[in-house]
Write a protein that binds this DNA or RNA. Structure first.
Lengths: 341, 341
DNA sequence: CTGAAAGCGCTTACAG
DNA sequence: CTGAAAGCGCTTACAG
């Protein structure tokens, strides 16, 4: 049945050390000896016991991915990219949902540490990540952040080029002749702030005064499924459309779009004739609406891959005892024009 | 820093065995002794080393979930339910995508076995799962299937009530006066077959002759992203609408809906006036279309939970050496009427 | 009720 | 180039 390295050694007539050397390529072994070992391995259909190896090496080959909202397809796509990249390195991700609750996030991190993950990738629920200082005091594992810029804990970071993305979108709207352009974001966090900044930048550059009242954010409830459609974003959109005569709207992410577009549909606003609309976050369903929706596409797959690579590089750096300064990577977005503007 | 059970034992003035007994509750220990141990644990901030424990116990606490198509939100939701349930039992899922390719699926299973998962949940790419007999010959771990009915390997199974779901939908359409009703499914597998059967059953029951030409399936390409919109399903829909004068259409799943609804949009078919439409698989985006789309909602979260529970129960059964016959669970669907019918 | 000790299956200095 | 042996941190019969 399940054979161990001992039986391989016995059958090959060598020591277990030699078998280990051959299997891991950690020491040069005479070709002849190597062949004997490999023959024995084949004959016994031997497979290394990863439980034993991991224990011995003190690693789990597991990377925890703590996600603020795993029901959001953006993060699911990040996870897909992460999985793909980690697989290359012989690591696997463990996904865990924080449901946009800081306490759950902390609990998740604690749990993952208790299951000996070798590294941690965090899409934080809120910026403040100082709790990590305490939790990671006794665990020297690498951490990388994605999507939101953390404060209170310094580490690698992968973000979309949010300013540029919003800037390009608004620039496009301005080029189409729009002047009364608004921005709605799901909740004011570092990401929404950057996108709002890109929004302002485009207006400034075009010499259009920035009306602070045209930049709106939802409340904390805006992230919950119940409030997505008819919550704060819906009301902001309604107000902007009916009371302020905006002609174009940029939505800060897919959550805000749910509320904003729900409102526009219910109000039977003619898009793009009466209102031009662009959203952050591309998805296939943006082509199933009437009209199809233009989008600033992020590249979640790539974000996941980069986070995976960073964690791996940091792991290697630690193993080789080399210093590695914290890095921040910005992933480009892409403006996709469809029927809504 | 990281302390071991030895240091706890030393500080508490007991043997490591006693510490282990206390920590695991595996033997009765005098309350006084127990307190000494717990105090030492607290003082040293001791956390059990799961790598060592797993190795010793020969388990990984990991359950592999091999998914035919992880980019499909249906399976992502199944994974969410699975994760939730496994967490309760102290297990974690490892997700891995087969990209609707049998060879990748087999490779994935091999990989997971090589990483010592304690159990396997499989959403198979195709029915034939006889390859498992060979792969699992040396690994006595439990397996559960979800979504599609496998052949060639017998184990637990979680499926939607596909016949009933389709039956209810078509019954509804018939009650609305429809007679020329068609069914389009992404690819003929056990699931699509069952849904087509529910479709037929409703017609039969209403005394409406079943026109075999009104039951259409895509080809193998119908599952690939490129072909989703304008592939076989699109063409079937086009043919059914333009050449056969159908007045109602049931789509067998979310993939088929992408092709079918794309066609209907492009043909500017008036829904529900000219054609009533119902799809399998609910999703939030079905309310963002014009009109909103009625759906036979599956309960992926529940499917995932049940699969997790089954695996766990089988694990417990094996540990206690009790026989446990294979089970099949059907999860009810729910007809959600929106604007499309 | 508690402890001494074996052993899970590897890897890795160390010796030769 | 190869091997004998220690040891990673637990759990668990077994003995008392």
């Amino acid at each position: 049945m399940k054979s161990s390295i001992k039986e391989v050694a016995h059958l090959a007539g060598v020591s277990v050390a030699t078998v280990s050397y051959v299997l891991n390529g950690t020491k040069h072994v005479r070709p002849e000896t190597e062949k004997r070992v490999m023959d024995a391995v084949k004959k016994l259909n031997y497979q290394i016991n990863p439980l034993a190896r991991n224990f011995r090496k003190g690693e789990s080959k597991l990377i925890g991915f703590v996600v603020c909202d795993l029901s959001n397809y953006f993060f699911q796509d990040v996870a897909l990219g992460l999985e793909k990249r980690l697989a290359r390195y012989g690591y696997r991700p463990i996904l865990i949902d924080s449901k946009e609750d800081k306490n759950i996030e902390m609990e998740n991190v604690r749990n993952l540490l208790a299951s000996s993950v070798d590294g941690l990738i965090i899409a934080p629920t809120t910026e403040d990540c100082s709790y990590l200082n305490l939790l990671l005091a006794n665990h020297s594992i690498p951490v990388a952040f994605v999507d939101r810029k953390p404060t209170g804990y310094d580490s690698d970071l992968v973000l979309s080029a949010n300013v540029d993305g919003a800037y390009e979108a608004v620039k496009y709207l301005i080029a189409k002749g729009h002047r009364k352009i608004a921005f709605v974001g799901s909740r004011l966090d570092s990401t929404m702030d950057e996108r709002a900044e890109g929004f302002r930048k485009a207006l400034r550059e075009a010499g259009i005064p920035v009306n602070a009242n045209f930049i709106r954010f939802g409340d904390n409830l805006s992230l919950s499924p119940k409030e997505l459609r008819h919550g704060a974003i819906y009301r902001h959109t309604l107000d902007l459309v009916t009371n302020h005569g905006i002609t174009a709207l940029l939505s800060g992410n897919n959550l805000a779009t749910t509320g904003a577009f729900s409102c526009l549909m219910e109000m039977k606003v003619k898009i793009p004739q009466e209102l031009a609309f662009i959203t952050f976050d591309d998805s296939f369903w943006l082509t199933m609406t009437t009209p199809s929706l233009s989008a600033v596409a992020q590249d979640p797959d790539n974000i996941g891959e980069i986070a995976g690579r960073m964690i791996y590089e940091r792991l290697m750096a630690a193993r080789n005892n080399v210093q590695r300064p914290n890095q921040m990577v910005r992933v480009q977005t892409q403006l996709i024009i469809r029927g809504s503007c």
